[in-house]
Each structure stands twice: as structure tokens, then as C-alpha cells.
Write a protein that binds this DNA or RNA. Sequence first.
DNA 1: GATGAATGAGTGTTCATTCAT
DNA 2: CATGAATGAACACTCATTCAT
Lengths: 207, 207, 207, 207
Amino acid sequence: MRKNSKKHIVDVAVSLFNMKGYSGTSVRDIAGKANVNVANISYYFQSKHGLLEYCLTSFFENYLSEIENGYSLLGQKEASEVLKVIAKNILYFQTAHLQLTRFVLREVSIDSQVIREIMSTYFMKERYYFKKVLEKGINEKEFKPISINYIIMQLKGLLTMPFLNTYYVTEVLHVLPYEQYFAEKYYLEIESWIDQVLCEKDVHMVV
Amino acid sequence: MRKNSKKHIVDVAVSLFNMKGYSGTSVRDIAGKANVNVANISYYFQSKHGLLEYCLTSFFENYLSEIENGYSLLGQKEASEVLKVIAKNILYFQTAHLQLTRFVLREVSIDSQVIREIMSTYFMKERYYFKKVLEKGINEKEFKPISINYIIMQLKGLLTMPFLNTYYVTEVLHVLPYEQYFAEKYYLEIESWIDQVLCEKDVHMVV
Amino acid sequence: MRKNSKKHIVDVAVSLFNMKGYSGTSVRDIAGKANVNVANISYYFQSKHGLLEYCLTSFFENYLSEIENGYSLLGQKEASEVLKVIAKNILYFQTAHLQLTRFVLREVSIDSQVIREIMSTYFMKERYYFKKVLEKGINEKEFKPISINYIIMQLKGLLTMPFLNTYYVTEVLHVLPYEQYFAEKYYLEIESWIDQVLCEKDVHMVV
Amino acid sequence: MRKNSKKHIVDVAVSLFNMKGYSGTSVRDIAGKANVNVANISYYFQSKHGLLEYCLTSFFENYLSEIENGYSLLGQKEASEVLKVIAKNILYFQTAHLQLTRFVLREVSIDSQVIREIMSTYFMKERYYFKKVLEKGINEKEFKPISINYIIMQLKGLLTMPFLNTYYVTEVLHVLPYEQYFAEKYYLEIESWIDQVLCEKDVHMVV
DNA sequence: GATGAATGAGTGTTCATTCAT
DNA sequence: CATGAATGAACACTCATTCAT
């Protein structure tokens, strides 16, 4: 009936998963809104869970490649510069995929064996890149001798918060992540944080 | 059959909601694990959704009173001190209620009309307290002339991240929020952030 | 809590049974509207079904005594006169107990073993009285040589129709059985029917 | 599994609704007796209530067309003749659909908003046809100057009584509506009623 | 390749009833 | 006596999935 229905199904699914959660969304909801037959979902993705995996996987593949793009500069640039590029890439990527990002961030916090299995590799890779960058910065006295894991946690907190709870961010704080300038503006906050919390002060104050 | 079953039901429900999400948890799951009759859940909380509201409400009531406890010091202490007390209170409260915190943080990100109605008052109050403290600090030149909403967003990101995704935090970052010392240690990070990102440097560097 | 709660429960039950049917009414509905504890219904009437039996029985006891009051005149008056008195009594009785009448007429049409057992005696008695009156009229050449059972059926149809379907009668036909004058007016119709359909014409045409 | 299961479900439903009432019948009863999956009932009729509407609607559609078939003769025949044809059609139709008729007559007497909405149009149409026929008869001095609504009420009472309470009619009055000759015989009673109660005597007595 | 019909397990909720207090 | 708590069965309905066509 519809051209490119697989892509279309995914779009609709992401939108609904975002709004109502994975468990709260039925395959009939998706099929109905995507205007395809229910059986097609099983046909394309084996099962509802297959559709979930597809969404999660495609998010993380792209998310990781954004990190990798920054990480590849580690030979040429200072660690703080690389960290900033990575942060910027993540921010822009998440801004470009608001619904998917929010849904993934939420769903991944479910204590599911299956989800863990899919995600753990990506989590590990992400941590690996962050760790390498931070270690280089520490070794070269660019960063303070910080706890790597605690810093990753904080950075992740800063980078994900604006995308987690749309209602809170937009209606309570009046921050609009879907506006063009948001990523630019919020990136400056992350930059400050890197400069002021991570970097050795005297080094940068002279500059 | 069982004494105090209402409290018991809530405990079990929080645990299951945390693990499987609200939609992913059935009332039969809860009743079974709590060893009570299914009908009791409707009896006590009217409906499954009533049980959800009960959990959310009791979380936010206590959460807000932690903030208020800190906020009440605003007349006597410096803004940065008050902010630190509030942050500390939140951290300890969330550490003491790991499962409920995680569940609430996740569920609240669902785009539900009903959830919004319950939560918006709490969100507004929370923002009010943060705003007052930050404004005082800015007026008294203790804080830099920062954007209040962006700072609240970052603070919330820092304070919630360790509680959002248990698997990630524990298995990937090896940070154990349920250990006694976690809150103490992580509080120091928040303190640094307040000192370095929020506060005017020269003022505090002399001290 | 409430004086005379048994009577009160019955009144509420009749009203609800009438509106929603016996199966469609829950004991909690009744208890709630009657402002008594649910357990009281089991206490007073053993069970929901006991309450039903109580309602049916009390209806038919009174209904039958209205018939008997007319029937007792059979020694003194003409059969047609007696039949008219009985019809009048039934009409006024049913007008005075609109809800109960409607509910009983409906519920009695359910194919239930239990209902049959309660009702058959009353039905038989009612038929007995009608039969006796009609037989006397036929024997004394007052009535045409009609089929007794077919006549009872028609008389019952005429006497019950206005009470069966309130909506139809009031909203479609604009006949208002709860108005004072209805029974008077409708009785004239029944009288005509007796005179014209049952009675030998020449006898009455001379008069 | 089963061909034509929709029709089969309706048949079973009518039978059970007739015996136990709508509220007293569960969808599991129906599915079980019809030997289909419970979910099929929702699938075919959306809900239990959809199944009810389907039954009611199909009854009244056919019932009305029986009336219309008689009414269409109004240009060619006398009003009393037309009324007799309509009465005959109704009697034969109801005899052919005993269970459905009984169930509809009962259920329609429930004070339900929804039922009213479905039925009121049919009721209005039925009244319209009766009214037109009666008015013509009155205008042409064929009928006495009767009250139209009261006459409709009586006619409906006469036509429905034999179908309302199977137990009473068969076991108490020994009238068997499912026997072939019943409709023929009972029609003569209706005919008498029309001739004797509705029609001007002298006109017809000469004939 | 795509679909409508059908399935059985599971959903939240309500039921009449019981019983300790 | 009267009640609120509690029960297990039943309620209508929705679920993801399958499969013949």
C-alpha cells in the first residue's frame, strides 16, 4: 500500500514509543498510525521487540559514530578540544533526533536483561572513548587529576538532561531544545564546564 | 491475611515499576509478589493509575520538603551555602530511595496529560526555590550573572544522572549509588561545580 | 446508621433494578445509593438474589390482593362488573407502583428456573381468578363464547403495556402514566374493550 | 476455524440474551456456546455493546419493513384493511423471530441513554405509520374519533403480549406462539379488536 | 508481498460474598 | 449489630502473534 513502509513504521514507532513508552504502545497503534497492516510489523521486524531493537540499535550506531568522529582527532588536538568536539557532536545529534533520543534514554533505564545485552557493547565503547580522551588530558596535565568515571557521569548528565523530560524542560524551564539556537547556546555551558571543572585553572587563566 | 498490606503493595509496586516500567508491570505482578489479592489494589488505590499517582505524589512531597528544608536557611546563610545544602539533601534523599527515584525520573518523562497535571505543581515549586536561591546569589554578586534556567537544568542533570540508569552507572561506570559513601563522594563533585561554575572566581579564590 | 434501612434498601433497589435491570445493578450500587454498608444487604436478604425475591414477592402479594378484592364481589355482581373492578384495581395499583411494576414485568420475562419457581404460584392464582370470572360471564350469556386464555392474554397485554417501556410510552406516545388522570382515562379504554369485545352486543345495545 | 462465525455468534447471542438478559450474559458464555474465540466478538462487533446494537438494529430494520410493506397499501385500500395487514405482518414476523423479539421487547424497556438513542428513530417511524393509517380511517369516518396514542398503545400491547413472557404464555395460558397456527388464530383476535373497538359499528354491521 | 481473520494469554477492573473485629 | 477489609471468580476487553489466502 505504501512505499518505504519500513522506514515509515520506524518513524511512527519512535514517535509513539516516545509519547507512551514501549510497553504503553501497541503494535496496532503503530500499524494504525502508519497506515499499514499489523502483520507487516511482525513481517519486517519479526516482533514488536525486534522493532524496539531496531530503533535502539540505529540510535546507538549513529550516536557512537558522532563520538568516533570527535575521537579520531585525538592525535592532532588537545584532549580538551577533542572533548569539546565530542560534546558538540552529541548535542547536535541529539537535537536532531529529539524523540528517538528521549525514548532511548528512558527505555534504556528499564532493568531488562534483553536491553542490557543490546546496549552493553555500545555503553562500553562510549566509555572507552571518553576514558581515552580524559586519560590523555590528565597525563598531559591539561586536566586536573579527576575521577574518570565520576566525570563521565557528570558529562552524561549534562548532555542528556535537556532531552529527557520535554515537558519539564520546555514548560517549566522555558528551554526549547527543538529551536535552532539551543544546541549552540547550551554547548557554551558544556564548554564552560569543561574549562572550569576539568581543566587546570592556571594553565587556562594565563591563556 | 497480611497486616499493613497497603504499605507492602506500594513497596512491591515501586520495585516492579522500577524494573519493568509502569506499563510493563501488571497489577497481577504486583499482587502476586506482594502476596495479596489483585482486587485489593483497586480497593486501596481505586485503580492501577491511582497506585501510580500515590507513588509519584509521595515521592514529590518528600522530595520537595528536602528542598524546603534547605531553602528555609536562605535568610541566614549565603546563597551558595544554601544551594549546597539543598543539593546535599536531594542527593541523600535520592540515595535513600533509589528505586522510587529512578522510576519517577523515568515515568515523568512520558508525555502523559495526567502525569503532567499531577507533576506540574511540584515542578513549579522546585523551580521557584532554585530560582530564589540563584537570584539572591546573583544579586549579592556571589554568583556570576548566569542564566537561571540553564543552571537549573545542569544542576538537575548532575543530581539525577547517577539514579537514572542503574545498569549503566553500576556496570559500566562502576559507581555504586547504593553504597553509603557514594552520596558523600558525589556531593563533593556537586560542590566543586557550584564553586567553579557558579561562583565568582576572585571572591572565592581569596578565601 | 439509618433507621428503617431494610425498607430503604428495597426502595433504592427497586429504583435501580428498574433503571438498569437486575443483572446490571450491583449490590454496591444499591448500598451506595441507600447509604448503607454493602454487607447489610447480605445481612438482611441473605444475598442479592434474596433481595430480588423479596421485591418480586412483595409485588405479587399486593398485586394478587388487588385482584382478590375485585373477585370477592363475584357473588353479588355481574361478571363484567367484577372484571371491570379487577381491571381498575390492577391499573391503579400499577400506577401507584410504576417502577416496581415495570421491573417485575421485565424481570419475569427472563427464562430463569428460580424466577419461575417463585412466580408460578402467583401466575396460577391470577389465572384462576380471571378464569372464574370469565366462565361465569360466559355461562350467564353475558360474555360471548370466547377463548378464556386468549382473552386473559389480551387483557394482560392491555393492562401492562403502559407500564412496560417508560421511554416509549412517555416520549413517543406522550402518555404519562405517572399523572393522576392517566389511570382514570385509560380505565375507560379497558372498559370499552370489555364491553365491545367481550360482551354480547345485543344485550348491551338495548341498554 | 468456523465459517460464517459472525452469523453464528449473533444467533447464539440472541438465544442467550433472550434467556439470561443482556447484562446477565457474558461474552464468554456466547463465545463458548458459539465455539469461537472470545476475542472474535470484539473483533466483529467492537464490543459486547456493539453486538447488542447489531441485534437491536437488525431486529428493528426488519420489523419496520414489515410495517412499511403494509403501509404502502394505504393509497389503494381502506385504513382498517391496511391496519389489519400491518398487524398480521407484525404477528408473523414476531412469530418467526420469537427469541429476538422477546429479548428486544425486554431490553428496550431498560432506561438506558444508549438504547434510547438507537431506538428512538425506529419508535418514531413506527408511530408515524400507525398515526397516518389511523388518521386516514378517522377522517374517512371508518374509525371512531379515537385517541390515536391510546389506540397505538393498546394495539402494541395486544401485539407484543404473547411474545413477552414465554413461560407465562406457554405454561400458564397454554398458548404456544411457536406453533404454526398461533399467528393465524391470534390474528383473528386482533381483527376482532379492530372491527369492534376501532370501527364505527353501523358501517360495518350493515356489511 | 500483503492481508484479514483468528487465537490464547493476559490486561485492568468489578463482582457478590465472607468474616474478623 | 454493623462494618471495612479482603477474597477469588468473573467481567469485558486488548495484546502480540500466526497463518491461510
